[in-house]
Amino acid sequence: MATAAEDVLAFLTRALGSPVGPDDDYFADGRANSLFALELVAFVEHRFRLTVEAEDLDVGNFRTAANILAFVTAKTGDRSPGAVTDAANG
């Protein structure tokens, strides 16, 4: 079973067409196109079974893979990233 981190990095690498590290800011380095931001939101919502609100996007939560994982952990409350993985795959 892939971990949350592996899934996020795999999605980003596939969507951006080149390897993505945990701290790469893909919005700043020019790899994101005009559809990518919405695709990323849809991926996070679908993979982690949560709803992203406008306020969630305000503080760079989606700018790097590490930020996404931290956001998901915070958003899902006391569920650990492991539990997040189980919920999404279960």
Binding site: R14, A15, L16, G17, S18, G30, R31, N33, L35
Partner: peptide, 17 residues
């Protein structure tokens, strides 16, 4: 272009980058 870019990115090619 979007459709082709999406296809090519799966093969490791990002036209903008």
């Amino acid at each position: 272009l979007h459709i082709a870019d999406r296809l090519l990115r799966r093969h490791g090619f990002n036209s903008a980058a």
